[in-house]
Write a protein that binds this DNA or RNA. Structure first.
Lengths: 353, 353
DNA sequence: TTGTATGCGTTATCAT
DNA sequence: ATGATAACGCATACAA
């Protein structure tokens, strides 16, 4: 048999006060004398009382919940960001609700629900582009918004410059003498409009153009995100009559597939093929993979803090916050004593952007 | 300015009916005539009405929310499970709330909150051991429970037999002629009581004992989960006067670290050192890593389905569901034409358990 | 089949 | 400083 819920009324009776006083104690209002406060707190402890968020939310007209909208929770980069978000939210007193979206319809369904102030006070969106209308609706409904890895007009967002990141990778490879540079990136099958892979490619083009060269369409392969498909695309590239001498992968996960392809094809890295990724996941340092590092966890922390900031009524000082990218040149682009899996001297050319 | 919320009352007025009728339509009660139903639905559409989960929950005495308790969201294995859970929950009509726990105090805080029927109708716990008292409390409060990768008396749970998995790995290595087998696993710093690493070690011991041998404590290293620390532990093992000829890592992530260590130390895999992992993450197939495969995503799907089953009032047919483990013998234990990173013949000895 | 009225557990507005 | 009471939006027992 389920025990009866102990309500604010029970506490009030036990403490010999009115419900309003108990409510004041709960919300730490200053307008209550120390003695009664103590009595109430004792009663709360005694009865093992827990306030109902439901009732509180209904009464206040909004729920003390923060929703987090994420795509493809399988991707390590998304998970790292989410981790940062949770870290902050967890000690904030707000509950965290997770909404995973993998398709347009799912996105719209979730967004429509989240517009409701009864659902959450604030929403954190990770890597999912929002339309002007979406943002306007949130605003109209009084639901705060904080964006991570995606931009939005007049909405606090924390991003990196993917295009600059791509250029960084390109410059690095060009500086090493590479002229035929392949690219392996994402094809956006979901229709959600992920742009980071494309932006990184554009950055690569920037780098090439600045050296009087241009992007070779033949050396570009786009496909579903993942190491396995990346390997297949790299195989494809390496089978070309005039294959690339370097490959820039839009993520470390994909770079792993490229690495795998190189070895399967008997190519030495970085001599026969140079490889650079993006993200700087743990696996990158393990495999001595050159990469463009971006602060994933920090982006989550930052995004969550900015939402909390708004909820406290403070203005976010810097609506658009750009996090730094950093080139980590390791053994898959730079020859060292021991090769890409070795422990040789690991040069970290940190190019701060 | 925030627009006024449209409530069930507005809909009732617009449709010229009572609120109860609207409520019946919303909850698809059969006790409403087709014509009025149509009128009400039209009004709902017209006004863009969305029922408030808050109010509904308060009225019903419980929220249509399902909480998911997860540890270390960074681990790919946990993420895969969570992915499965979300996949199912997402099309169930319930909301999904995520609670991440990394410490004992965090676990207790979250559990205490989740006991509340106002917080959620059901709770899914991933990989976190629950005490008898915890389980009893959930039951007393009428909150349904479903466990994944952790056991519980009389509570539906889906698990694998980690000990058998360890034995499987052990038998495989022993069968290949290895006698000095090292183990690299997790040290449970959190105090939460994760046991899978330990169970896998016990399984390895079972295998050794069945061959008249015993576990060599000298060859065991436990440390914080991660590829980097695993590499360090492997380095340590390989520096031994009489180093192991094979290493069983408690997870693929850790096996990656071992692989890295082997190459850094100039050891050929699998000739100088055989390596086997656990989980069969995507990275395992990419790197041709031998491993004990467990159905991670499926465990999430199964766990979520079992909770939904209970919520529909049906009994879960099989309280303890054991998922199958499978040995994938690949190039890090079995010599092939191209070695661990190659694409040679990939034998998959599937030992169903 | 449909409408009325009450309760769910809080917060907030009044009084006192 | 404190207490009584009206919302909050919905579900449901009861009445019609």
């Amino acid at each position: 048999m389920e025990r009866q819920r102990v309500s604010i009324f029970d506490v009030a009776r036990a403490a010999g006060v009115g419900v309003a006083t108990v409510s004041r104690v709960l919300n730490s209002s200053p307008r209550v004398s120390p003695t009664t406060r103590a009595r109430v707190e004792a009663a709360i402890e005694e009865l093992g009382y827990h306030p109902s968020r439901l009732a509180s939310g209904l009464s206040k007209g909004r729920q003390d919940m923060i929703a987090v909208l994420v795509p493809f929770i399988t991707r390590p980069s998304v998970v790292s960001r989410l981790e940062g978000v949770i870290e902050v939210l967890d000690k904030s007193g707000y509950g965290t609700t997770l909404y995973s979206v993998a398709s347009l319809s799912q996105r719209d369904r979730h967004l429509e629900y989240l517009m409701d102030r009864h659902a959450s006070v604030g929403v954190i969106v990770i890597s999912i582009p929002l339309s002007r209308e979406h943002i306007a609706s949130f605003r109209a409904n009084g639901v705060q918004l904080s964006l991570i890895d995606t931009a939005g007009e007049d909405v606090p967002h924390v991003v990196v410059d993917d295009r600059v990141g791509g250029a960084l990778a390109g410059m690095h490879l060009i500086g090493l003498g590479h002229r035929r540079i392949g690219f392996i990136g994402d094809e956006d099958l979901s229709g959600l409009g992920f742009a980071s892979s494309y932006k990184r490619l554009t950055g690569l083009e920037d780098a090439l153009v600045s050296f009087g060269r241009s992007l070779d369409r033949e050396l570009i392969r786009l496909g579903p995100h993942g190491a396995t498909t990346a390997k297949e695309m790299a195989d494809d590239l390496l089978r070309l009559g005039n294959p690339p001498t370097a490959i820039f992968a839009a993520s470390d996960t994909q770079a792993l597939g490229v690495l795998r392809s190189a070895q399967a094809n008997g190519l030495k890295v970085p001599d026969d093929l140079a490889v650079i990724g993006f993200d700087n996941l743990e696996v990158a340092s393990i495999f001595n993979l050159s990469t463009i590092a971006q602060p994933l966890f920090e982006s989550g922390v930052e995004g969550a803090q900015r939402l909390l900031c708004q909820l406290e009524g403070r203005e976010v000082e810097q609506v658009k916050k750009v996090l730094r990218l950093e080139l980590h040149a390791r053994a898959t682009t730079i020859r060292s004593a021991v090769g890409p899996m070795g422990t040789g001297l690991q040069r970290q050319l940190s190019a701060y952007v």
